[in-house]
Design a protein around this nucleic acid. Structure first.
Lengths: 191, 191
DNA sequence: TAGTCACTAGACCGATCGGTCTAGTAGGGT
DNA sequence: ACCCTACTAGACCGATCGGTCTAGTGACTA
């Protein structure tokens, strides 16, 4: 793993746990075993450029996970439930520290660092596109675009609730609430 | 308005816009026209104590708004739609800076400052209780507790999406998606 | 062997961080 | 007049912030 890759991976992890302002450059450097010289060589734009790269990386990882779950599930509802389960497990396994890196970053850097906001936005857009596409294909809801927004919003919000409560149940709860509507609508009997 | 009150109000506003780590104590002091001496007299616990107080204050304000909307609306669905409209308007009017103070704070301080997380949690709990109570009274959903979690999660998540996209539509979208289910259900007598 | 290029090392910088501490000041009670 | 209490003012502290800059280092090429 190259120095650049380690920097991006460590930055993504810390960003996810404590946000943009909450993580120092020197902390990222120390945790990744790099030096300032290396970092500012690979990311001349400094902390902001590194953060943008880390968020792009995380967004891609999650997009791949969504793609995998969607393609390996019989319907969108099953995939969303599986996605929720993965998110909840990751949160719980990290002692309720790892929520959504994009949400954490945009809330505390979106105002002052527009590049961060744009990176988050394009990450969300990719996820929404995947969800919308599959729901449109399944024909299980009237307005796939609106439903994709609902799914993503509810999961993001539930992750925050879960973090505040130190309890993963909100994530499962919203997943069940939303997808149960599809199962009945699609004629599939509820679990 | 006392010095203490000004400190709390300013802290709440800045916390809402840029999170815990993103706001400096000296910035709060300057914006509220106080001095360090005053601040550490009123809040011996420093930044964390002030933040907790600010979050409690914000949580109470929102709780009052929810109470008002619930009591002045014919049904829960109308109240939730009105609530979403208020949140979306506040976000847009602040150039997409004012999301939910609780969410912003817990994501970037919840890990390191447990008192902040606890304050956020109790704020959320109060809001959930109000929503759950009214939905139970209305009898429009099977599981009022789960539905309250869905409403709050979806709105919180939609606020984040809206902030990332600089577009308030996600907030209205999720509100419509969720409450439309109730409106149809509200035509039928409660079980 | 000398030169080039991609990258690393880390001392150093001014600014700002959260927090402490001493010296006040204003107002009410006696 | 005196003091006491509540509060304010702001200089000051060490630590850390993000960022810059010079001096390498090692591999590859001419």
């Amino acid at each position: 793993m190259s120095t650049r890759e380690r920097l991006v991976a460590v930055a993504a992890d810390l960003l996810q746990r404590r946000g943009y302002a909450g993580v120092g450059v020197s902390e990222i450097i120390e945790a990744s075993g790099a030096t300032k010289g290396s970092m500012y060589f690979h990311f001349p734009g400094g902390k902001e450029e590194l953060a943008v790269e880390a968020l792009r990386d995380r967004a891609t990882q999650i997009a791949r996970l969504i793609e995998h779950l969607l393609s390996s599930s019989p319907d969108a509802a099953t995939a969303v439930a599986a996605f929720a389960a993965v998110l909840a497990a990751r949160l719980e396994d990290s002692d309720f520290q790892r929520g959504c890196a994009l949400a954490t970053a945009v809330l505390d850097a979106g105002t002052e660092h527009d590049a961060v906001r744009v990176a988050v936005r394009s990450g969300y857009d990719r996820w929404l596109e995947l969800l919308e596409q599959r729901m449109a294909d399944d024909g299980v809801v009237d307005d796939p675009a609106a439903e994709a927004v609902l799914v993503l919003s509810a999961l993001e919000g539930a992750l925050i609730l879960a973090r505040a409560q130190r309890d993963p149940r909100p994530v499962h709860t919203v997943s069940r609430s939303i997808t149960s509507r599809w199962r009945t609508a699609s004629g599939t009997p509820p679990r």
